[in-house]
Amino acid sequence: MLLEKFEGDFDETTSDMVSQIVAKTIIDVGPALLEQVNTRIHKNFNSDISECFEHPQYLNSALKDLFGDSFLGIVQTIKLRVEGLGLDDTKEFVSMLGV
């Protein structure tokens, strides 16, 4: 009921929502890991988690470097949560994230 005001910039919202989901999922694995993932993305790609919607491959690479094979579980959780949004414009992100 409080929402009808929002009409505008949906792409930015999707990007925000996805980066929030990614950040929370990593925090769920271990609160200190978020900083590590962010640092890795920054070091390798001069980017950060807030841009992971536009560049899922950066996230994929950082998770793989840091977690080895267990990155699959984290990616799977991120994908499930992003798919839970039911938004069409997340499909490309989900497919590019891998697994």
């Binding site: 009921m1 409080l2 929402l3 009808e4 929002f6 949906f10 919202t13 999707t14 929502m17 949004l85 039911g86 938004l87």
Partner: peptide, 14 residues
């Protein structure tokens, strides 16, 4: 209260 629209994006944007 929040979910007053059929568009989930609007809900989530709020």
């Amino acid at each position: 209260t929040i979910q007053g629209t059929t568009n989930p994006k609007k809900t989530n944007q709020f």
